[in-house]
Amino acid sequence: MFEARLVQGALLKKVLESIKDLLNEATWECAATGISLQAMDSSHVSLVALNLRSDGFDKYRCDRNVSLGMNLTNMAKIMKCASNDDVITIKAQDDADTVTFVFETPNQEKISDYEMKLMNLDTEHLGIPDTDYSCIVKMPSVEFQRICRDLSQIGDSVVISCTKEGVKFSAAGDLGTGNVKLAQNANVDKEEEAVVIEMQEPVSLTFACRYLNSFTKATPLAPQVQLSMSSDVPLVVEYKLEDMGYVRYYLAPKIED
């Protein structure tokens, strides 16, 4: 028997919104430690990895590991039936071919349940090595979203250049060029407004706007985003979920032909 109850059900809605652009289907791996998911987008260019720790749920029971393969478009249809202040419970029997979502209003006066068919997905799991990154940038997630959106008007790619002083995002296209520079700024009133750079050595890497824009669907999940970069290895874009886990996206830099 698997059962996970989240009073803050809106969080689950946001998690789904953050991955459904990239993934049509995925397997939610449920274990005693929590729920995890790892999947590549259909073109195998980017990877999504997320973790929701069991202690972040208000009630969590997982007698044995279960793999819940889901069509995420269908899951999103069901999640749309939950209000933002609903309590959400996910339930599945061992070896079941369906999953049940229960939505309760905070006053318990309305309880809805939706049963969805599960899929048997042939999932490839990739091992992600621990990496010491040359640059780690922490910045407001809304700012990152804004920059990705703005620069994708200029070109298909964004060059992210990071030094100790700051981080620069650049794009070039038929109409001209655009640059956005952010200075390191840890002395702000609110922690979430800080731009903090941990640099071992400077990097300058090129990434596809299309994927960066998809990653920013996770913006509502966290006030800050963390970009980890090294030459010739995939960028990690991480959104930390308070007391719960993370959503991470991996994207390899473009290579000059």
């Binding site: 260019v45 490839e124 990739l126 091992g127 995939p234 991996y250 994207l251 390899a252």
Partner: peptide, 14 residues
């Protein structure tokens, strides 16, 4: 021009 490598070429299957 630049090429977009696949993520699967960076990480090993487990």
């Amino acid at each position: 021009t630049s090429a977009q490598p696949k993520i699967s070429s960076y990480f090993q299957k487990t």
